[in-house]
């Protein structure tokens, strides 16, 4: 199997790209997409660590995969809800640029 450190470096790269997308872009839809990137990076990290720790004590690779399943489920709920909010925002303000949504700012 490929060494764990490569998976971790890959995961770090994907996470950082997602972080840049969240911080530096205006469109709320793109920020959502970047969050999905970050969640995927975390999933890779979890599953790689679980696969490499298999056989260590009573650890099985399914322990890590289980957490990844929960992350995927929560991510699905999050995307559905967030996109509903984005659509609502667009209907009220006719923009999805996050720096123009300043209703709660004074």
């Amino acid at each position: 199997m490929v060494d764990l450190v490569w998976f971790q470096l890959l995961s770090a790269a994907l996470f950082v790209i997602g972080l840049y997308g969240v911080l530096a872009r205006r469109s709320a839809v793109l920020i959502l997409m970047s969050i999905e990137l970050m969640l995927n990076a975390v999933n890779i990290n979890l599953i790689a660590a679980a696969a490499h720790m298999e056989g260590f004590g009573s650890f099985s690779r399914f322990d890590g995969q289980l957490i990844a399943i929960f992350i995927i489920t929560v991510a699905a709920a999050e995307v559905g809800l967030a996109l509903a909010i984005v659509l609502r925002m667009y209907r009220n303000r006719s923009t999805v640029n996050v720096d123009e949504i300043d209703l709660m700012k004074w």
Partner: peptide, 24 residues
Amino acid sequence: ISVLIIFAVMLTRDVQQGNPPNRL
């Protein structure tokens, strides 16, 4: 999830405006 996101992109008509970076 990708279908949901593509729906959101299509419904919010900001596609022409593109994906501008902010000041940060």
